[in-house]
Design a protein around this nucleic acid. Structure first.
Lengths: 193, 193
DNA sequence: GTCTATAAAACGATAGAC
DNA sequence: GTCTATCGTTTTATAGAC
């Protein structure tokens, strides 16, 4: 199911990451993880204390990966507007939803400070990075001085997260793209400014 | 647990609505529903074909209710901008999330056209209503002629849905409010326009 | 209509052989 | 380290008494 050169512990984490993305924490059973990883019960309980412990390892890895991807784009080339645009329009598997954002709808993730922490941390870091970009854009005169960086950043991240909701509701990525397009049209530096 | 004058069938639907909101479809067991409703197995299987059938009744009711609430605000008094503002700022139990939007993260809801239909329909109707309002605002000169009603509507609904994600990630409604504030600042009719 | 009894399977974990 | 066996509980339902 995975590379022959991946350790059992690695295969367990990767299986869990996939299942958490597809089905969330409450919808993912150890049995399903083990089947996908091609491992037995013993392996899982040898490497991890149980389902919450394995899930934590999986969530942390997904969070780190997403943070790196987002920051790669936000710290990339271009003006502040262009970098926010790049973040909003980067390729996404829209109908699969956000592997981190979807966890916020899971009651057991939200009930556990440990499981929620990497989710919160990731979203917060991206939000802070965008807020900083907006402030930079204001200094450069690209954005109106009246904009609040923190608020705009929340709008940007929320539009992405909510875009997944619209797309999955309709079964098509169209609404996600429309939401992004609407936000970019509101955010765009206007020649008249 | 509910009014003595509520029928068993009603109590089952209401219990299911609450649990779907709190835990989603995969996280809600018939047993939990029955306990909350104060009913036995037999009652549930007498009134409903099974879990999916009961969930459908519950989802339909929540969808109808949400549609009515949203349209009540969007069709209320005020200019197009004011009505969109009223929609965005209406009182919400932010940390509980959206009882309809959260269902889009549930694999079994998304896998079932029947369960997904009321979710899709509700979000789509609200989006259409907002798109129409934006077009009205354009005709009245309140919004720039360059805005695309459908796109802005998607942004508005996505900001709300994504705002729930940010709020639940951080455990505080602050980020929801910030996202709404950011969007309103971008959308606000400017005297200079 | 509502209840309890029963059931096969899945859940999450432990024990212990290899 | 990995496996299978076992465990007690929960899940989703059916059967049948009342």
């Amino acid at each position: 199911m995975y590379s022959r050169f991946m350790s059992t512990s690695e295969r367990l984490i990767e299986s869990t990451r996939e299942l958490l993305w597809e089905r969330g924490y409450v919808g993912t059973s150890p049995k399903a993880i083990l089947e996908r990883a091609g491992a037995g019960q013993g392996s899982m309980y040898h490497h991890f204390k149980g389902k919450p412990d394995l899930a934590l390892a999986a969530i942390r890895r997904t969070a780190d990966e997403m943070r790196a991807t987002a920051e790669g784009v936000l710290d990339g080339p271009g003006t502040p507007y262009e970098r926010i645009e790049a973040y909003l329009t980067r390729e996404r598997d829209v109908l699969r939803g956000c592997p981190i954002g979807r966890l916020t709808m899971d009651p057991e993730v939200i009930a556990s400070d440990e499981l929620r922490e990497p989710v919160d941390e990731t979203i917060d870091r991206i939000r802070e990075r965008i807020a900083h970009l907006v402030e930079e854009g204001k200094e450069q005169g690209q954005f109106g001085a009246g904009l609040d960086g923190e608020a705009i950043a929340a709008t940007v991240v929320a539009t992405v997260q909510g875009g997944y909701v619209l797309a999955r509701a309709s079964g098509s990525p169209t609404a996600f793209d429309a939401g992004v397009r609407g936000l970019l049209s509101l955010l765009a530096p206007r020649p008249t400014d």
